[in-house]
């Protein structure tokens, strides 16, 4: 929730401000739906949060990159949410009920995120030369993280194999990545932007794009918690949680008092 939250107070007009608020709010909701699904499995949120706060849980590596300009908000919606949709549609068709139900809901909302992001990029790309440069710069920085977000190559993925065997996940990471690239590259071309991969080529024979080498070292570093924003984002989360403690306690105390009063009455 935090990387884009940064830009809510700086959104360049009222319409964008409202859209970004609604989008970031949805992302908070996604966290909640997934916690909710996990709770059906018997893991409670306090436990999940403490895993997150102590760095035990591996949260989506994308949140470790900084958002440096307004165009990043466009790039995130378009690329990161776009990649998320690819991942999630696969999970939505998976076999675990509560999880795939949450995913169905999430996917609907992601499609709004995806479009608003593309709309931002399109507006910038058609704007002043400075705006176009801002959009291209954001694409340069977010392209590879988004491509990596679809998970390690099949020969490098520890979880994917097992998830596929259990039918929680129905397709391999590389297959999903190919579909993402096939859809996204023409979208970039349409608005006059270029993906930062000099080896990207369309293969007439297969009908798919082939991409250049992916820097998996960076991916595994970020997952390990060594991204540029890892420590800060985590600290912000822990801080907010600590600051909220007295509020949660107050509401609990009030509820207990009310329950007691009802008993007496």
């Amino acid at each position: 929730m935090l990387p884009e939250g940064n830009w809510i107070t700086r959104a360049p007009n009222l319409r964008r401000k409202a859209i970004l608020l609604a989008k970031v709010q949805d992302e908070g909701g996604h966290g909640l739906y997934l916690y909710s699904a996990a709770e059906t499995l018997g893991v409670d949120r306090t436990e999940l949060l403490s895993q997150l706060h102590t760095g035990k849980a591996k949260y989506s590596s994308i949140f470790n990159y900084p958002t440096l300009s307004w165009a990043d908000i466009g790039a995130i919606g378009w690329l990161v949410d776009g990649a998320a949709i690819m991942n999630q549609t696969v999970l939505a068709r998976g076999s675990y009920g509560p999880y795939s139900r949450a995913m169905v809901r999430i996917c609907k909302e992601e499609s709004f995120h995806n479009r608003q992001g593309y709309e931002i990029m399109m507006t910038l790309a058609q704007g002043t030369p400075e705006q176009k440069a801002m959009a291209q710069d954001a694409l340069n920085r977010w392209w590879w993280p988004a491509v990596m977000m679809l998970g390690p190559s099949d020969d490098k993925s520890p979880n994917s194999d097992q998830l596929m065997r259990w039918k929680v996940k129905l397709e391999s990471n590389d297959a999903i990545r190919e579909r993402f690239i096939d859809r996204t590259v023409p979208q970039a071309e349409f608005i006059g932007l270029k993906v930062p991969d000099k080896d990207m080529k369309f293969n007439e024979k297969t009908g798919h794009y082939t991409h250049g080498e992916i820097n998996w070292d960076e991916f595994f570093e970020v997952i390990k918690g060594n991204g540029p924003c890892n420590a800060k984002r985590l600290k912000d989360r822990v801080e907010a949680d600590k600051k909220g403690r007295w509020v949660r306690e107050a509401a609990t105390a009030y509820a207990a008092k009310q329950a007691k009063e009802r008993e007496i009455a």
């Binding site: 909710s36 709770e39 409670d44 949120r45 306090t46 949060l49 949450a102 949660r248 509401a251």
Partner: peptide, 28 residues
């Protein structure tokens, strides 16, 4: 410190149709 008790949520979409389970929330 707690995240508050969990409540299951049922939403009715239109008049006359049943409330449907949609997920949960935490609340005091």
């Amino acid at each position: 410190d707690t995240q508050w008790p969990v409540w299951e949520v049922f939403v009715q979409g239109n008049p006359g149709i049943p409330h449907k389970h949609v997920g949960n929330v935490h609340a005091p």
